[in-house]
Amino acid sequence: MAKMKFLCDAERCIECNACVTACKNENEVPWGINRRRVVTLNDGEPGERSISVACMHCTDAPCSAVCPVDCFYTTADGVVLHDKDQCIGCGYCFYACPFGAPQYPQETAFGVRGKMDKCTFCAGGPEADNSAAEYTKYGANRLAQGKLPLCAEMCSTKALIAGDGDLVADLYRQRILRRGGRPQTWGWEKAYGAA
């Protein structure tokens, strides 16, 4: 069975932030929330690398393990989603996530946290597929339309790849063979338990 995974090829990422923009535009992400971010390591130094980071939809998701109201669920193809009607905005998932994926909208002037928001792998949430309610709460449900996350589809250098883990790994392996050198599957070991 297919398991959906993200992979960011640091050799190809040019820090254009198109993935961030595509995500915000496609999902109407509220101000102050970035479901996806581009992080640059060793900025300005020789050998600097950029990686695009969002929820990695971990195999054994730590956010789900610590949630006191059990609002997380995982689809058959490995996408980790949550129910905003159940979420109490406690912030436990934020502390548990190794990728800093959970985000909280600031709803009042006093810093009260709202419902948690994170990347859904463009798979919406527990509402009728592609309904207005689903779009308002979770954003687009491209998976139900047979499409993959827009951040990866929009990536001009194909640094960000999203899809079935086997296909992603095959594609990346071919690149490494062509390119030479060692694979750098950033975040894969932590998220999926495999190098």
Binding site: A65, D70, T75, V79, D85, Q86
Partner: peptide, 17 residues
């Protein structure tokens, strides 16, 4: 119940996989 999802059903779960 620990680890048991209690939220609404997602129609995507029926077609996913």
């Amino acid at each position: 119940q620990p680890g048991k999802y209690v939220g609404a059903n997602d129609p995507l779960l029926e077609i996913a996989g």
